[in-house]
Nucleic acid binder design. Structure first.
Length: 215
DNA sequence: TGCCAGGCCGGGT
DNA sequence: ACCCGGCATGGC
């Protein structure tokens, strides 16, 4: 039988052949990517776009300027993302780390490398594994595999993981078996989101035409 | 119209 | 170590 590596690459190749390159993350600057990573927690990306646009129009896509805002002012600006009170605090906590420990320079954080930088991010209240890994991969260009709800759902429906698999276990599956290549990890996660959004939705999987042979 | 979205935390077993 | 409720807007 095929190796896990071959199984994973088969999925990748099918998704890539179907959807093509995804050009992720859908954000321009690394800082914008980091904000988006927090704003999109359990939230549709569409809602996040409004917030990013508002922030940009107000010249606030900048660590120093954004950290000058109060939590309540920030919350008002990110209302469309939902959970806006919580997310305003989470963004504040992230900005505190960035400003106090790295002088507002994301490169200072990422230059610590994936292990150290991940630890620092996870120490921030409101940043969990997926949010941290999204920042590391898509803002920092570090070889970290991002696992999300779609990844779990797709792998489970294809019996590639147990139902009780943890984040770290699934991440390890990819990082152990694949080349730790930023470009591959970038594309792979984006493709999971693409197939998840289009075919493997929660209670009504629209499997018709799914490139993975049904969900 | 309800259900769900690219999570995470805190309190209870 | 799990399990579950809370957080909230907007789109399909």
């Amino acid at each position: 039988m095929g190796t896990q590596r071959e199984g994973l690459m088969a999925i990748f190749n099918r998704l890539y052949g179907f959807f093509g390159p995804q050009h992720w993350w859908p954000g321009k600057t690394p800082f914008e990517v980091c904000l988006g990573a927090i704003l999109t927690q359990n939230t549709a990306w569409k809602n996040v776009e409004k917030c990013i646009k508002t922030l940009e129009e107000n010249g606030l896509l900048d660590p120093a300027r954004l950290s000058a805002l109060s939590i309540t002012d920030l919350a008002l600006l990110i209302r469309p993302a939902g959970y806006y009170n919580i997310k305003a605090r989470r963004i504040k906590s992230f900005l505190n780390l960035l400003m106090e420990d790295f002088g507002g320079d994301l490169e200072g954080l990422f230059s610590l490398g994936p292990i150290e930088a991940r630890e620092r991010l996870l120490s921030v209240h409101g940043i969990g594994p997926e949010t941290a890994d999204s920042m590391l991969l898509y803002a920092g260009n570090l070889p970290v595999f991002v696992v999300d709800a779609y990844t779990f759902r797709v792998l489970q429906r294809h019996d590639l993981i147990w139902e009780d698999a943890t984040y770290n276990e699934v991440q390890g599956l990819f990082e152990r078996n694949l080349d730790n290549d930023v470009k591959l990890f970038n594309e792979f996660h984006a493709l999971f989101v693409a197939v998840g959004k289009n075919f493997c939705r929660k209670h009504k999987p629209r499997c018709k035409g799914c490139p993975l042979n049904g969900c």
